[in-house]
């Protein structure tokens, strides 16, 4: 698996449910970061030349290479806008999140 996915977490009910000391599975994510976004990136795949600059520079690593197209893991995108700002082809637009 390239990226960890959101995993359900069972809250401990007994002291023995806790790990011995502060240690836990690497890449274990009970929470997403989707709630952080005011704007969301929308990709214009026709304009995109797959240069991967957005893939390289995303602070959260949420841009995925998907068979020659870029895809965004919206569970963990925080909507910072770096991808849109850095895109040499202006192929990514930041659009207000709608509830």
């Amino acid at each position: 698996m390239d990226r960890p996915k959101k995993t359900e977490f069972t809250f401990p009910t007994h002291i023995n449910d806790y790990p011995t000391g502060p240690q836990y599975k690497a890449g274990y994510l009970p929470e997403t970061n989707a709630g952080w976004r005011t704007f969301r990136p929308v990709v214009d795949h026709d304009a995109c030349v797959y240069c991967l600059r957005c893939y390289l520079l995303c602070p959260d690593g949420t841009i995925i290479k998907d068979n020659g197209q870029i895809k965004i893991d919206m569970d963990y995108c925080k909507g910072c806008g770096v991808c849109a700002h850095e895109c040499p082809k202006d192929a990514i637009e930041m659009v207000k999140e709608q509830l």
Binding site: R3, P4, L29, N33, P59
Partner: peptide
């Protein structure tokens, strides 16, 4: 991945 850094960190 899935860290809680500020947006654009």
């Amino acid at each position: 991945y899935g860290h809680k850094a500020c947006a654009g960190c």
